[in-house]
Nucleic acid binder design. Sequence first.
RNA 1: GGCCCAUUCGUCUAUCGGUUAGGACGCCAGGUUUUCAUCCUGGAAAGAGGAGUUCGACUCUCCUAUGGGCUACCA
Length: 503
Amino acid sequence: MTKVRVRFAPSPTGALHIGGVRTALYNYLFARHHGGDMLLRIEDTDSNRFVPGAEAYIIESLRWLGIEIDEGVGKGGNYAPYRQSERKDIYLEYVQQLLDAGLAYRAFDTPEQLEAKRNEVKNFQYDASTRLLMQNSLSLPKEEVNRRITAGEAFVVRIKIEPNENITVHDLIRGDVVVNSSILDDKVLWKSADGLPTYHLANIVDDHLMRITHVIRGEEWLPSAPLHVLLYRYLGWADTMPQFAHLPLLLKPEGNGKLSKRDGDKFGFPVFPIEWTDPATGEKSSGYRESGYFPEAVVNFLALLGWNAGTEQEIFSMQELISLFSLEKVSKSGAKFDYEKGKWFNHQYLQMKSDEEIADLFLPILKDKNISADKKVVVKIAGLVKERVNFVSEMWAQSSFFFLAPTAYDEKAVQKRWKAETPALMQELITVLESITDFSAHNTEETVKAWIAKHEYNMGAVMNAFRLSLVGELKGAHLFDITEIIGKSETISRLKKAIEKLT
RNA sequence: GGCCCAUUCGUCUAUCGGUUAGGACGCCAGGUUUUCAUCCUGGAAAGAGGAGUUCGACUCUCCUAUGGGCUACCA
């Protein structure tokens, strides 16, 4: 059996969209599952839309997510070059072959003429029914064609599609899709504007030459798949044509349409894997990486948007995804992007991290806040706070009281928990705390609780006022974990301050 | 407009002719807790509509509706 080879073939027209990331992921999972190769090919045949930096962005995004490339741009391989703009001569050879075989023809119609035609005839399509009315090597006398060519007149090359034939595309996800060739148009294969092939030609030539066995791409390509099947046939490669799988699209979380860059701005979540700055406008778009997502969480989340193992498992490592993935289990319909679930995945992965790892991520944030803290202490705090947050970036809000004494007290909390007798109670608590030498959470808790029990104080009244004094609000970690970390003198100092400020 | 694809809780999905239609996110309630959060338990919540086929349809077929995609010298 031939070795599975798949490719991810994005255009360097900007940041890699999250839907594109999923396509790359599925290709990768499929390749690894079958012990095959994953290629990265850059489809830069549209010189107008080329964006500098996009290629590097794509490579970095895949690297961050752990989607490894075996061959291609940035990696090399036996089928180089992997950038289509560097393969022009190769494509030239094959258009010529199509031209010589009479399967393609030259068309001289200018974009303006085509535009005029489209305005004049509704639903105009350049095909068998109209091509003889246009200016091309099929409609014009041979001498006229030659004259135009030698005069250097610009022309495109179009595929010549024979009408009235049912073309079947076998899709691994959708089954057979049958389309009548009459509805297909004579697509441009070679552009005159920039002297490069179109996607259709370059794609087929490369997939064939690079020995691609499975084409796994977005559903937006399904309508042109019959054209691609025809091209394989025209080029004599029908017997080695790759298998197709068209993936369902990622849709907007609300309303209609596919997920777009604008949705990120609108709903406040990233639609790009890593931050992207548009080189033309300087406009920044947020990325999952910079938003504090773990790559494993993004991968897990994306993997389940359109695929599932058929079990009730939700959390999958890359290795598990690889061993379980199959195209048969990819769903057929588009998936609305559920950002809330994405956050949940990150929460799950955050809980799996060691306190040490989390501390390493939290330390720079503390540094930003001008907090210098001992790593050991931060590790401890990470352990106490991680379960309360989805992202490391949210930890400061949950832990600032470990580092800073409250400067204000929540008004409602004060009203509820700071009564006339509270100052005296807190004063007594200070005395109790002062007597403690082993200020560990456990011992302090025992001592304080014993004191409360002995005097038959109201537990809630004491503890809440205590908390209010230390935190400034009625929230936060276990109280005696706080006292242990901030220490005896700071604990007492905060109590004193509260008594002073709230009385 | 034409062509193609799709349609199970609000969302992601399981089910591959016979199920009390399952799970997860989110939501709601209760419990744990000194607080908030976490966590645990429970709850509400779905087969687009209509015809067939069949002893029996979420599952197969057709129609309609709805959603999506494509319809460039963009990919």
